[in-house]
Computed example of a mutant assay.
Amino acid sequence: MSGNGEPLGDRVIRAVRAEEWPAVKELRLTALRDPVAHLAFVETYADAAAQADDFWRDRTARTAEGSEGAQQFIAEASDGRWTGSVTVLVEEPGTTDWTGTVVEHKQGHLVGVYVRPEDRGSGLTEVLFDAALDWSWAHGVERVRLFVHEENARAYRFYRKVGFEPSGLTVPLKDSDKRELELVLERG
C-alpha cells in the first residue's frame, strides 16, 4: 500500500511532476484555507496566494519526481483530483535547520501534510506517510522528523499512531506563547 504509483481504492500515491505546478499551487492554497491551517502551517493563505507563478514553478521543480533533496507525494483520484499531499525535505548533517539548530543526522523532514476533509479517516494519510518514509529510507536518511503545533491534537495523535515519538525539542512560535513540538521516527 505504499510507494510510487501504489493504489488506495481509486487513489494513486505518486510523486509530483515539475509541470504540475498549477495543481501543487491549487492544493496548497486549498490547504491554507482549511479551518485548522493556522495550527498546521507556518505559511498563510494571503502570503501563498500573493506568490507569482515562477515561485510555484520553482517550488514544484525542487520537490518533483527525480529530485534528490526533496520529494512531494500526492494522492490522485481516478478523476485526476488531488486529495492529499506530504513533502519530504532531506536535511544534511552540518547544515543549519529552520530553527537555527545544526543538523546532526542525515534526516528527512516531513512538511505540508494535508488531506482534504472529505478524505480524512480513509487511511489516505497513512499511505502518503508510507510513500514518504519509503522514499526517505531509500535516500539514506537515519531518521525522519516533523513538527506539530502543541494545540493540533488530531495531528499529534496520528503522528504518534504511526510511530513518531516526541524528541523533547520544542520551538516557540513567532509572536505567540505557543510552541511547535518535534516528533521523530528512527530508521528501524
Rank of each mutant, 00 (worst) to 15 (best):
residue 1 M to G: 02
residue 3 G to R: 06
residue 3 G to C: 07
residue 4 N to T: 08
residue 12 V to Y: 00
residue 14 R to L: 05
residue 14 R to D: 02
residue 18 A to W: 03
residue 19 E to R: 08
residue 24 V to G: 01
residue 24 V to Y: 04
residue 25 K to L: 01
residue 25 K to F: 02
residue 27 L to Q: 01
residue 35 P to H: 09
residue 38 H to V: 12
residue 38 H to D: 04
residue 40 A to S: 15
residue 42 V to Y: 15
residue 44 T to R: 05
residue 44 T to M: 04
residue 44 T to K: 08
residue 46 A to C: 06
residue 49 A to E: 10
residue 51 Q to E: 03
residue 51 Q to F: 01
residue 53 D to F: 06
residue 54 D to R: 01
residue 54 D to H: 04
residue 54 D to M: 02
residue 54 D to Y: 03
residue 58 D to Q: 05
residue 61 A to P: 05
residue 64 A to E: 00
residue 65 E to M: 13
residue 67 S to P: 06
residue 68 E to M: 01
residue 71 Q to I: 14
residue 76 E to Q: 15
residue 77 A to P: 07
residue 79 D to N: 14
residue 81 R to P: 03
residue 82 W to C: 01
residue 82 W to T: 01
residue 86 V to A: 14
residue 86 V to N: 14
residue 86 V to T: 15
residue 86 V to E: 06
residue 88 V to K: 13
residue 89 L to E: 07
residue 90 V to R: 10
residue 91 E to K: 12
residue 92 E to R: 13
residue 93 P to T: 04
residue 94 G to D: 00
residue 94 G to Q: 01
residue 96 T to H: 05
residue 96 T to A: 08
residue 97 D to S: 11
residue 97 D to T: 15
residue 99 T to N: 10
residue 102 V to S: 04
residue 105 H to P: 03
residue 107 Q to G: 06
residue 118 E to C: 02
residue 120 R to Q: 07
residue 121 G to L: 07
residue 122 S to L: 11
residue 122 S to W: 09
residue 123 G to I: 06
residue 126 E to G: 11
residue 128 L to I: 03
residue 129 F to G: 02
residue 137 W to G: 08
residue 137 W to R: 13
residue 138 A to N: 08
residue 139 H to A: 12
residue 142 E to D: 12
residue 147 F to T: 15
residue 150 E to M: 14
residue 150 E to R: 14
residue 150 E to A: 14
residue 153 A to I: 15
residue 153 A to G: 12
residue 156 Y to A: 14
residue 163 G to Y: 15
residue 164 F to T: 13
residue 165 E to W: 09
residue 170 T to R: 15
residue 170 T to P: 10
residue 172 P to W: 14
residue 176 S to L: 11
residue 181 L to F: 06
residue 185 L to W: 08
residue 185 L to P: 04
residue 186 E to C: 14
